[in-house]
């Protein structure tokens, strides 16, 4: 059993409602025991004051961005929270939420959580949650690469301020996000049914929900090769393999791909049929980082083909398809 503390990364472009969502999350019943680390950019940070009004245990990293200049501050801030909880100088906590600046690239932060020698034994990345402004989100996706990367990497996308948006524009934004990141779950922050706690449900990290999470991926990943006029020229596509997949060959191929192109492979999610595994294998990663494979006892549906979804930036999907299938075929012949 994984006893590490789940860490949720809350990202989203400037003014998209991250702090409002965080305040709402912290006031939900049962959310006591949530530690918060807030990164603010600017000489006078105010987000943490808004959060402190509802939550006493917030740590603030100021005057820089944790995805670049404050990487070590992020590591140290998280270590201080963990060490402080052991020492009794920080309240005990069962989960942690890290709120990034609006300009942060979430990928380096994910890498820090997964690779830091101390943190990786104490924390596990639960979800990346990205807020998108219903009024301005479409424009930000067209003009700001940071906004596209945040949405492309997220596991959960929350559209905020939907009560202020024109219904047609909102529908177009929802469709755009679904094409950009087809496997992410999409939420409307103003919907009556929206419960902010849903964002913390872990999906793959929780044995009770991992099958449903993969079923969601598969339901929404059946489209092929969508290109978008986004600021970052990001496309998503799915790749289907009918034959069983040689895990060793797949590992050699994917590690070589991520070594050369990891910065441009924003997300990989896959369900693989590996001949000597007891059940289907779920693989997921962000850029250079691939998480430990998740084993499922049963297939999510009747289809036992392997299916892999890529979200890439400036990479020709056809080349990835040709490379993987070509390498698997050459490996089988060897």
């Amino acid at each position: 059993m994984d006893t590490r503390v789940p860490a949720t990364l809350l990202t989203g472009f400037l003014g998209s409602g991250k702090t409002t969502l965080l305040r709402r999350l912290l006031t939900e019943p049962g959310m006591a025991g949530t530690a918060v680390l807030i990164n603010e950019f600017g000489e006078i940070g105010i987000d943490h004051l808004l959060v402190r009004a509802v939550q006493g245990s917030a740590v603030v990293l100021q005057n820089g961005c944790i995805c670049c200049t404050l990487q070590t501050d992020l590591q140290q801030g998280l270590r201080d929270i963990i060490d402080g909880s052991f020492a009794g100088t920080f309240p005990p906590f069962q989960r942690i939420v890290i709120e990034t600046t609006g300009l942060a690239d979430p990928a380096p932060i994910v890498q820090t959580l997964v690779l830091d020698p101390m943190l990786k034994h104490r924390l596990r990345l639960a979800n990346v949650v990205a807020t998108v402004d219903a009024m301005h989100g479409a424009g930000q996706l067209r003009t700001h690469e940071e906004s596209v990367r945040q949405a492309a990497i997220a596991d959960r996308l929350v559209i905020t301020k939907t009560d202020l948006a024109d219904p047609a524009k909102l529908a177009a934004l929802q469709a755009d996000l679904a094409r950009l990141n087809p496997t992410a779950r999409l939420f409307d922050a103003q919907a009556d049914s929206f419960n902010a706690r849903l964002l913390l449900i872990e999906g793959l990290g929780d044995p009770a929900t991992k099958l449903a999470e993969v079923q969601h991926w598969l339901r929404h990943a059946d489209h092929d090769h969508c290109d978008h006029a986004h600021a970052a020229r990001i496309s998503s596509f799915s790749l289907r393999i009918e034959a069983t997949v040689d895990w060793t060959a797949f590992g050699v191929w994917l590690t070589s791909l991520l070594h050369r192109h990891g910065a441009r492979v924003l997300r990989v999610k896959g369900l693989l049929n590996v001949p000597d595994a007891a059940g289907p294998i779920v693989l997921h990663g962000v850029q250079h980082i691939i998480h430990a494979p998740v084993h499922l006892d049963v297939w999510p549906d009747d289809d036992t083909a392997s299916r892999i979804v890529f979200v890439v930036q400036d990479v020709d999907p056809e080349l990835i398809r040709r490379s993987l299938l070509g390498f698997l075929a050459a490996a089988e012949a060897k």
Partner: peptide, 26 residues
């Protein structure tokens, strides 16, 4: 212990040689 096919009776030597061959293919 969490590896794919961990319980499939693979030997360390065979898996190592297979991986070397596939790396050299690349």
């Amino acid at each position: 212990p969490d590896g794919v096919g961990h319980a499939a009776g693979l030997t360390r030597g065979a898996e190592r040689q297979r991986r070397i061959n596939l790396v050299n293919l690349m």
